[in-house]
Amino acid sequence: MIRALKEKYKTEQVFWGVIFIAPTLIGLIMLNLKPAVDTIILSFQKSTGFGNQIWTGLDNYRRMFHDVEVWQAVGNTFIYALLTVPAIIILSLLVAVLLNQKIKGISIYRTIYFLPVVSTPAAVAMVWKWLYNSDYGLINFLLSKLGIQGPNWLTNPHTALLAVAIVGIWSAVGYNMILFLAGLQEIPKDFYESARIDGASPAKQFFSITIPLISPTLFFVTVTTIISSMQVFDLIFMMIDTTNIVMPKTQSLIYLFYKQSFILNDKGYGAAIVVLLLVIIMFFTAIQLIAQKKWVHY
């Protein structure tokens, strides 16, 4: 038995292998694995002040299921994802396809589209808040030139989440465009040549060559974009003031988690909220992992 193991693993490799993974393993256990378990435990507890926790079983979850604010936040998170995910995918794919043509100035376009990605969300949110300003903002001024009376974007419950979503889309297109561009550049050009000779229209080429061949990238972008849109926090935190009346209509689950855990200091309830988000994200990721077998070609 020991001899068999020795044959399989050479001593030197075992020695260095363990040393090489040690820092990352310890880090992952201390900073991720244990915290994940702790958060789940915390969600069954209530803080009694001074750092003491008492076990309350399913109380936080029971409270959550009757909490209108939580369900509103679930709804807001879904609406935000529905507003941003399709737009991000379509626009970044469109830009990538256009940049994949033989045209001049590709690197200038690429730089410009990528600028929001390297800008810190705190600054991005501030300038958009200013653009959306109902009295002095550039957006409503331009709308008024077209004869449209612009809304109070960030204080109107019908437009606030849309306004935040637009910034979310604007910020994410550049990043995913780069991913798509990398996928597109791997498609051999002669595929399109022969399709053209066969008389396939550009639309037909797009759906029967481009889409299947970039389906792994498309899958990756879809999964990661859904996950990150469900975790939206920065833009809401920066653009919607805590006293803004539209807050219940815009706050996401992560915003609510932040509020409960660090402002209201109810870390147990905050933990239950973040566990709910984990379950939702896992559910959507699992569905996509199953569905990908039908449409992703590796």
Binding site: L28, K34, D38, T39, Q231, F233, V274, V275, L278
Partner: peptide, 12 residues
């Protein structure tokens, strides 16, 4: 670790 949203680690 890569599949879990990072906010779940934040409080601990």
């Amino acid at each position: 670790q890569m599949m879990i949203p990072s906010q779940i680690f934040i409080v601990p």
